[in-house]
């Protein structure tokens, strides 16, 4: 898997897939709280994502015990090339969110052999 390929796949976030979407995840969280109104749980989950986005937007580290941590990675400006015509293109320094899975999550996933539902 290359960085280039990764950049392509993220644009098809809405594409139908065997993976879980935001709403699937919300449904799973709602299912864990039978005594809280589903709409409240759903709102709370949406706010979690918003708070995480705000934190990363100020270069703040997010540390979730057992799950992992998010921080920014800085990529220096580079002189890239348009792959189609070879023209040089200046690519400015970029900040990109990075996730480092926690030890517990890594351990749970590395041995998992169930087929990947992507």
């Amino acid at each position: 898997m290359t960085a280039g390929k990764a950049a392509d796949t993220e644009d098809i976030e809405e594409a139908p897939s065997g993976g879980l979407t935001r709403n699937d995840v919300i449904a799973r969280v709602v299912g864990r709280f039978p005594h809280t109104p589903p709409e409240d749980v759903a709102d709370a989950v949406r706010v979690v994502l918003e708070i995480m986005t705000e934190a990363l937007a100020e270069a703040r580290v997010i540390e979730i015990r057992g799950f992992g941590s998010f921080c920014l990675h800085y990529y220096r400006p580079i002189l890239g090339r348009n792959p189609r015509n070879g023209e040089p293109v200046a690519l400015g320094g970029r900040y990109v969110p990075h996730f480092r899975p926690g030890r517990l999550l890594r351990r749970r996933i590395e041995k998992s052999r169930v087929p990947i539902k992507d």
Binding site: E13, G18, G19, L20, T21, M52, S112, P115, D118
Partner: peptide
């Protein structure tokens, strides 16, 4: 084994 795709946030 589920990938997670949260549009606007990430995969």
């Amino acid at each position: 084994g589920y990938a997670i795709r949260i549009s606007g946030f990430g995969n």
